[in-house]
């Protein structure tokens, strides 16, 4: 049971990470990156590491996303044509 839970959470994280890399919109990419942090919180809790889970919940999904969003306010919004 716990192995299946770990497997599905990893699949969700990998999907969200691919979306964050391949997305053309930077704001969308940052929001999808928040999903990677959210899945990491679930996995750290399953791995019996509540301290790391609390840190990742505060930093990976909270302050890191805020810093990214405040940062892309000052650089240009749209993705350059590659």
């Amino acid at each position: 049971m716990i192995g299946l839970l770990i497997l599905f959470t990893f699949l969700a994280i990998i999907t969200v990470a691919l979306g964050a890399i391949l997305s053309k919109d930077i704001t969308q990419s940052v929001m999808l990156f928040m999903g990677v942090g959210l899945g990491s919180v679930v996995l750290f809790f399953i791995f019996q590491a509540p301290d790391v889970a609390l840190t990742e919940a505060v930093i990976g999904t909270g302050l890191s996303t805020a810093v990214f969003l405040l940062g892309i306010m000052h650089t240009s919004q749209e993705e350059m044509e590659s």
Partner: peptide, 25 residues
């Protein structure tokens, strides 16, 4: 894009954290 490169760095970082914690469970 500069911000996309930093997002990629953070994804690599998250992968290493999961690897370290997970192998000791």
């Amino acid at each position: 894009n500069l911000v996309k490169v930093l997002v990629s760095f953070d994804i690599m970082e998250s992968a290493l954290f999961l690897f370290f914690i997970g192998l000791h469970y």
